[in-house]
Design a protein around this nucleic acid. Structure first.
Length: 271
DNA sequence: AGGGTGACCTGTCGGC
DNA sequence: TGCCGACAGGTCACCC
């Protein structure tokens, strides 16, 4: 479910409310992608100082410690002072004096990992390889283009790999490539500096717009406050195979790249 | 070392 | 109605 916009919207929806909360109880259900790395009971009594985001990870700064939360494909968080009874797909919960934070994740590709701090191996293992934050000033067109020049695989695969730029998943890779007029199969190293700059801009605009729209709700994503996203309603290509392109009316094409669906306009997007 | 593939897990949907 | 395969927002370990 969650790409950068969904993760950021989730963060914004509960960061302020959990700030300075004292953890009363931590509860762990079925195994997630990785083990927590500590006993849940060891988290009791700690404070939650705040919530940051790095790529698709949420970082809960504790006193002391750090919790890394990844939503995988089907995860979502809920934060409230009164949550309904736990369901079969609820697998982690932090009960605090300001409300409960609960992870719902049917496929369990998500994870909650404890690390003593950000420099600890448990955290570095997950964060070290991550590329640049696309909405930060660190993300520059020229550096992006230089990075692309070193990669021979299809541009969409490079975006999804997350080692050049983070947070771009299947939906927003398709959308950004459409807005930049670039065919998803184009080899990254063949993009000109001008087209790389166009893609750089498209990534920023698409992600920023999606955050404003509350993310994309395809099946059941909602923020930690329970609000659905609306960006899917303005997707130009994602999930629209066979429908007319809004720009040129050509039917949107569908192909598979690395076992993922790619949507694009054969006419608007060129090699 | 870059690049491609299978694996993880559950739910849903379309076709027969 | 029921069964079966394909597919779903991610990413890691493993091969060449």
């Amino acid at each position: 479910m969650p790409e950068l916009p969904e993760v950021e919207v989730t963060r914004q929806s509960f960061a302020g409310r959990i700030e300075n909360a004292r953890i009363h109880t931590a509860w762990l259900g079925k195994p997630l992608r990785w083990p927590l790395g500590c006993q849940p009971a060891a988290l009791a009594g700690r404070r939650v100082l705040g919530v940051r985001r790095r790529g698709k990870y949420l970082l809960l700064d504790l006193e002391p410690g750090l919790l890394l939360i990844h939503l995988g494909m089907s995860g979502s968080l809920a934060f409230s002072d009164r949550l309904p009874e736990r369901g079969v797909h609820d697998h982690f919960e932090l009960i605090t004096d300001q409300g409960s934070l609960r992870l719902h994740d049917p496929r369990r590709f998500g994870a909650v990992v404890y690390a003593p701090d950000e420099a600890a191996p448990q955290a570095r293992k997950l964060l070290d390889r991550l590329g640049t934050e696309p909405l930060s000033d660190q993300f520059e067109p020229l550096a992006f283009w230089r990075g692309l020049k070193q990669r021979r695989s299809a541009i969409k695969q490079v975006l999804l790999s997350g080692d050049l730029v983070v947070g771009v998943g299947n939906i927003y890779a398709c959308e950004a490539l459409f807005h930049a007029g670039i065919r998803p199969t184009t080899r990254a190293h063949r993009l000109s500096r001008v087209r790389a700059a166009r893609l750089h801009q498209a990534i920023r605009e698409v992600l920023a717009r999606a955050v404003l729209q509350g993310g994309s709700t395809l099946r059941d994503f909602s923020s930690a406050s329970g609000d659905a996203g609306h960006f899917q309603l303005e997707a130009a290509v994602y999930g629209r195979a066979g429908q007319a392109c809004a720009v040129c009316a050509t039917p949107i094409s569908l192909l598979r790249q690395g076992q993922r669906s790619t949507y694009f306009c054969h006419s608007c997007q060129r090699n």
